[in-house]
Simulated scan of single mutants.
Amino acid sequence: MPQLSYQKRFSSLRGAPKFKAVLLGEVGVGKSSLFLRIKDDVFNEKLQPTVGIESCFKSLYVDRAEVSFQIWDTSGVEKFHSLTRSYYRNTQVVLLVYSVHDSASLQRLTKWIQDIEHHSPNAMRFLIGNKCDQEKSISDQSAHNFAATNECADVFLTSAKTGEGIDQALVKITEKLLNSYQRPFMMESPFAYNITSTYEDSISLAKDKYNNGKKDRACCF
């Protein structure tokens, strides 16, 4: 039996499927620049590090089906680390960002992965190698091994400066999320600090239920 298109599969939902995604990683890897490129399709050389939390909405069309993301940019500064933990709630997508020319930034993602396992164990993880417009000091194989060890569903190389790889990564991420669809449900998600976000017809993902219990660990370079 041929697989239904995403448009037909989600036609019963009242609106576009919605996912909450968070950007995580150390200071200097370009999370805020990625966020700005996704939000406004611009690059600011003098962009200052995020203090606390910023968010935006991004709509994508895959196979004529609309999907909406609420993307959160979290500060990598350690003194704000405890602040961002409350924002893991109801997260379906985690974008782990490192800089391809800073080998330490990849290994330091392990502390964020510990937070994910504690606060959002069912979220799908994706590894993002940013600043691919610069000379790499991290091999593709090293990134692939890190992704496999830490249960990342895919690996992407991007440049917030040039925009390279970002749209392609978002489309691939969307396809993997829709293919891992379990069931729609209604969810309202009040967050701290006077920020309230409502997710209608969101997607619930259950860990170890992708591909009949096996995650797709194929990587894209």
Rank of each mutant, 00 (worst) to 15 (best):
residue 45 E to K: 12
residue 64 R to P: 08
residue 79 K to H: 11
residue 44 N to Q: 11
residue 38 I to K: 06
residue 50 T to N: 00
residue 78 E to W: 06
residue 24 L to G: 03
residue 71 I to A: 04
residue 28 G to F: 09
residue 62 V to L: 15
residue 89 R to K: 15
residue 66 E to V: 12
residue 42 V to A: 10
residue 38 I to T: 05
residue 92 Q to R: 07
residue 27 V to Q: 13
residue 56 C to L: 03
residue 82 S to T: 12
residue 81 H to R: 15
residue 37 R to D: 07
residue 34 L to H: 02
residue 38 I to L: 14
residue 56 C to P: 04
residue 32 S to K: 02
residue 70 Q to P: 00
residue 24 L to D: 03
residue 29 V to Q: 06
residue 81 H to S: 12
residue 71 I to C: 03
residue 39 K to R: 11
residue 43 F to M: 02
residue 50 T to Y: 09
residue 66 E to F: 08
residue 54 E to N: 14
residue 70 Q to F: 01
residue 86 S to R: 06
residue 80 F to Y: 15
residue 75 S to R: 11
residue 20 K to S: 02
residue 26 E to C: 12
residue 27 V to M: 09
residue 37 R to N: 14
residue 64 R to G: 11
residue 85 R to C: 03
residue 32 S to P: 00
residue 25 G to S: 04
residue 54 E to D: 15
residue 48 Q to F: 04
residue 94 V to N: 04
residue 45 E to D: 12
residue 55 S to N: 11
residue 26 E to P: 05
residue 25 G to N: 04
residue 70 Q to D: 06
residue 72 W to P: 08
residue 67 V to K: 01
residue 62 V to P: 12
residue 40 D to C: 04
residue 27 V to F: 13
residue 27 V to L: 09
residue 59 S to Y: 10
residue 92 Q to S: 13
residue 25 G to K: 02
residue 41 D to K: 15
residue 40 D to Y: 02
residue 34 L to S: 02
residue 91 T to V: 10
residue 81 H to V: 09
residue 73 D to I: 02
residue 48 Q to C: 10
residue 77 V to D: 14
residue 32 S to Y: 00
residue 48 Q to Y: 07
residue 93 V to P: 09
residue 84 T to L: 00
residue 35 F to A: 00
residue 42 V to L: 06
residue 28 G to R: 07
residue 27 V to W: 00
residue 62 V to R: 09
residue 34 L to V: 01
residue 45 E to I: 08
residue 38 I to W: 05
residue 72 W to M: 08
residue 86 S to G: 08
residue 79 K to N: 14
residue 44 N to M: 07
residue 31 K to L: 08
residue 73 D to M: 02
residue 49 P to A: 09
residue 52 G to F: 00
residue 75 S to A: 15
residue 40 D to S: 14
residue 81 H to P: 00
residue 88 Y to P: 04
residue 57 F to A: 13
residue 88 Y to H: 06
residue 27 V to P: 06
residue 25 G to C: 06
residue 27 V to D: 12
residue 43 F to I: 03
residue 45 E to C: 05
residue 38 I to Q: 04
residue 74 T to F: 12
residue 65 A to G: 10
residue 80 F to T: 04
residue 45 E to T: 11
residue 22 V to F: 01
residue 85 R to F: 09
residue 37 R to T: 01
residue 24 L to W: 01
residue 44 N to K: 13
residue 78 E to T: 11
residue 63 D to G: 11
residue 43 F to H: 05
residue 41 D to L: 08
residue 61 Y to F: 13
residue 63 D to Q: 10
residue 30 G to T: 10
residue 85 R to D: 05
